[in-house]
Design a protein around this nucleic acid. Structure first.
Lengths: 225, 225
DNA sequence: CCCATTTACTGACTCTTGGTCATTCAGTGA
DNA sequence: TCACTGAATGACCAAGAGTCAGTAAATGGG
């Protein structure tokens, strides 16, 4: 009897349906402005039903984030599989990150807005793994893939640094989150103007930055122009 | 007749009183959780009065941010006045930034949470300069002070780079905003663990980072060990 | 000193929205 | 056919942002 399985599938479908509706709306109007009623309407369900699948609005919010992180995780795996110098791998990952985020406003917003979640999340109603926990784990995995790429780069000589791979990865992730904020806040005129004046874009700036990071002075074996 | 002046002063005092109450409460419970009623009570005023001084909650929120930025501006001015190598000036500024932010949770939260403001802020009810505008301006000024410090550093040789001062400043500000996020999200266990394992702290990491940025490979005139 | 006018403030009220729950309905299996 | 399960509903509630008619206080002219 495959009834249990079917029910399982249907449940997952419903969840997805809700999530998709939520993402669409958040993309259009932002998280705050999107009401649970709207999401319900878009998903062609009643509001009460949403609460059968998500504890509350902030959980739904986290689920959006999780979906984005999973997507990113797949992409990162694809990159690390490739047979390229470590430096290239790192660059590709960071570009992938920025690219994914810029083409997925809902996810980006979910990544950056967290006040909601922080406060009062000690509610011990959650004995299950909790989506927040999941997100953290995926983030950690993403980080470790970056570290792995850096290690490869150090091995093959494409990355010269005196820093621990993990420390370097930490720096790079700070850098990414800074750029992210730039993207999110959309029209940060001033910064945009500087980039234009110097015929730069964020990806180019990123490359430039990595260049500096990966060719430290105590490594003279590099091509000097 | 100094009546107008006195009224002016009193009005400013009230505004400050509200702002202070708001900051206290945000510090304690976060922005979302703090209600206008609570702020009113803390400020010993009625809720209606708050709305005589601030258009809405998000404006109040921006005002918190503005206050923090002004504080930061003063600090930055103090730094740039000092007769030190440019590299030192930059370092001091960045440390000041991180320091101020970590010791002022309300301001930090105001800096990072912006969804509120972005959405629907085309309301043309604002013909006055608008606090949002003010914040932007101060941010730009802060940025220009950084640029100034970098220029000094290039001049006195303490900063070696092939990048435009403004571009470098942009990078550094991305870096800062990334670190900021780290601080804000509080217990980012994983990152904290990495720092501990390497006997590092954010300020130390920052120094390390600047070291790399400021001693680029195409400048062999530096001390090599 | 008194009255008219302006200014500052109040808090009861409205409206929106997140979240709940008693009830209904559909599918299942005996 | 009927009892049972659990999925879905939407009327309902509470909280909090924002409003506004009304009140009190300060001001200034007569």
């Amino acid at each position: 009897m495959g009834i249990k399985e079917r029910k399982e599938r249907e449940k997952k479908r419903r969840r997805d349906q809700i999530l998709t509706a939520a993402i669409e709306l958040i993309e259009e109007q932002g998280f705050e402005k999107t009401t649970m009623d709207e999401i319900a309407e878009r998903a062609e369900l009643s509001k009460g039903t949403l609460y059968l699948y998500f504890n509350d609005k902030s959980t739904l919010h986290q689920a959006v984030k999780k979906r984005g992180l999973e997507h990113l995780y797949d992409k990162f795996l694809q990159v690390i599989k490739q047979d390229l110098p470590g430096a290239e791998l790192v660059k590709k990952m960071m570009l992938t990150f920025l690219n994914t985020l810029t083409h997925n406003a809902a996810f980006t917003k979910a990544m950056v807005l967290y006040e909601h979640i922080k406060e009062g999340y000690n509610k011990e109603k959650q004995e299950e793994p909790s989506i927040v926990e999941d997100c953290k784990n995926i983030e950690d995995e993403l980080f470790m893939i970056m570290v792995r790429a850096i290690q490869i780069g150090i091995q093959d000589g494409s990355i010269k640094t005196h820093l621990e791979p993990k420390v370097l990865a930490l720096m790079l992730s700070f850098q990414m989150s800074g750029m992210l904020k730039f993207y999110l806040s959309g029209s940060h005129d001033h910064a945009q103007k500087i980039l234009n004046d110097n015929e730069l874009s964020i990806p180019k700036l990123l490359e430039e930055f990595l260049e500096i990071q990966f060719h430290e002075k105590n490594s003279p074996s590099d091509n000097q122009e």
